Amino acid sequence: MTDSTSPARPVATAIRYLSIIVCCACLLLTALCVAIACQVFIQTGVFAQSYAMVGLISGVLGLLALKLGSVWK
Score class of each variant (00 low, 15 high):
A8N: 13
G59E: 02
S58P: 05
L66T: 03
Q39S: 12
L68M: 11
Q39G: 08
C26M: 01
V11Y: 10
L61R: 08
I36L: 02
G45M: 01
C38Q: 13
K67M: 10
S50T: 15
A8P: 07
A65E: 04
V40I: 04
V54C: 08
L29S: 01
I21L: 15
L56F: 06
S70C: 10
L27E: 03
V11S: 11
I36R: 02
C38S: 14
C24H: 11
R16E: 05
L32K: 06
S4D: 13
C23D: 04
W72S: 10
P7M: 02
L29H: 02
A8Q: 15
V46W: 08
S58E: 04
K73C: 03
V11C: 08
A37K: 00
L64K: 12
R9G: 04
Q39T: 13
Q39V: 09
A25E: 12
K73T: 05
D3T: 03
L61F: 15
Y17P: 04
L61E: 08
Y17E: 15
I42T: 08
C33K: 03
A65K: 08
L28G: 10
A31H: 09
G55R: 01
V40P: 00
I20V: 10
V11I: 14
S19H: 05
C33M: 00
L32Q: 09
S4W: 13
L63M: 02
V54L: 10
M53L: 14
Y17T: 14
Q49A: 13
T13D: 15
V46K: 13
T44W: 00
L66R: 05
C23S: 08
L27D: 08
G45K: 00
G45T: 01
C26Y: 01
A14Q: 07
T2M: 08
V22S: 13
T44N: 01
G55C: 03
L61H: 14
Q43V: 07
Q43T: 06
